[in-house]
Structure formats: C-alpha cells, structure tokens
C-alpha cells in the first residue's frame, strides 16, 4: 500500500515544517479536549466516588445509566448539544454555538460518564479495603471520598487518559457543534474528515498519524509518571 508510506512521509514533513496552521489546529484540539477532561473530572471523579461509597436512593439505576452512557454515540450528543445551544434553543442567548466552548460542552457530556463509571469501579475496589480503617479513624462520607480519590490517584490517571483519548479522537460531536470553521473550531479530527472528503487521502492519513502520535506521547508521559510514582509510593 504505497498510500501509507506516502502518508507517513507526509506526516513527517508536516511535523518537520512546523506549519503554523497545523500547530494552531493541534493546540486547539488539545485545548478543547484538556478543558473537557478537566471539567469532566471535576464532575465525574466525585460522582464516581460517591456512587462507590455512598448509600442513597437511585444509586443502582444511576450506576447502570453511567455504565451505559460510556458508549454514547457522539453524533447524538452533538445533536443534543446543538439543539441546546442553537439560537432557537434554551441556551441560545449565550451565543456559544460554533465556538470552542460548545465543543468543550459536547465533549464533557461524552466523557463524564466514562470518567464517572471507571472511577466508580476503582474507588469501590479501594473502599472494600479501606472502609473499616477509615470508619475506625472517624472519617465521614466526604472525607472518605477525598481520601479514596487521592489514594487511587495512579489508577485514576489512567481513567483521565481514557477520557482524553476519547475526546481527542472524537469527530461526530465537535463537527456538529463546532461547525469545523477554519481557524476557529477546526480541530485535528474535523480536519481529517475534511481532507478525506476532499479526496486528499494521504494528507488525511498523515494528520491521522500525527493525532495518533500525539495521543501516544501523552500516554507515554502519563505512564512514566505513574510508574515512577507507584514505585515510590507503593
């Protein structure tokens, strides 16, 4: 398949050229997805931990729903957020449609369930070991949640990376709510979709390789941090 070699060369050329437009697209991708992971973590981590530790009405259905929502179809989320943010929709007056903020919102909806559901599992496992000790020391529910989140931080890093990977790779939702506007809401994935539809398959594939390389680099970094930290903290 000569296209693949061609695309690899093109990818290397693109990276080497330091093309400012490409750089802007990469930066926007990271900005949007990191912002989304940040907000989704603020919601998803405490929610997951509360589901693991607490005893309250609706816990079971909420857990099942979260698990199911890990596989939300991005296009549906995109449409939903679009209708919400559209000028004719309930949040229309904010004027957020076709802005990076809209893309962040859509990605938050997509990855919060992932972060909540996976962290619930991790915290529940830790809680199994910690419950008596924490209760013995007099930790209340909120204190227990904070302690468990901190003590499972190495595993939770992996959860956040899963969220980031999904956010960075996602195209359906950001295409709809961002509009793929050149220089404003055009990110890696929507650029790839655009180049594909222009029939410039080598360029599309080259951009795909750069995206994969980016995700790989982020994961390598996080993996190394996790390794070192875990070796030191047990």
């Amino acid at each position: 398949m000569p296209e693949i070699t061609q695309a690899l060369i093109a990818a290397a050329d693109l990276v080497a050229s330091g093309d400012s437009k490409l750089l802007a697209i990469i930066v926007l991708s990271l900005r949007v997805s990191l912002g989304a992971v940040f907000i989704a973590a603020l919601i998803g981590l405490p929610l997951g931990a509360a589901l693991a530790v607490g005893r309250f009405a609706g816990q079971l259905p909420l857990t099942v729903v979260l698990n199911a929502f890990m596989g939300l179809p991005p296009v549906v989320v995109g449409l939903f957020v679009y209708l919400l943010l559209s000028r004719a929709g309930p949040l229309g007056p904010l004027g957020l449609l076709f802005t990076p903020a809209a893309m962040v919102i859509a990605q938050v909806v997509l990855i919060t369930p992932i972060i909540a559901a996976l962290s619930r599992q991790i915290v529940a496992d830790a809680w199994h070991d910690y419950a008596e000790q924490l209760k013995s020391l007099g930790a209340g529910l909120t204190q227990s949640i904070r302690t468990l989140l901190w003590d499972t931080r190495f595993s939770l890093v992996t959860v956040l990376l899963a969220g980031l990977g999904r956010a960075l790779a996602e195209v359906g939702a950001v295409m709809i709510v961002g509009g793929n506007i050149d220089g404003v809401t055009r990110v890696m994935t929507t650029t790839i979709a655009l180049e594909t539809s222009k029939g410039d398959l080598p360029l599309a594939l080259a951009l795909g390789f750069i995206l994969i390389g980016l995700v790989l680099a982020l994961n390598t970094g996080a993996f190394l941090i996790r390794q070192t930290a875990q070796r030191r903290h047990g």
Binding site: F38, F154, I225, R226, T228, R232
Partner: peptide, 15 residues
C-alpha cells in the same frame, strides 16, 4: 524523581 511523581503540589501545578 520528584517532578516525575504525583505529589499534591505537582498536581496543583499541572492543573
């Protein structure tokens, strides 16, 4: 080694 580990301070700096 410090900068590669997850400390409270490191976490806040990263955030």
């Amino acid at each position: 080694a410090l900068s590669l580990s997850i400390t409270r301070r490191g976490l806040f700096a990263l955030i």
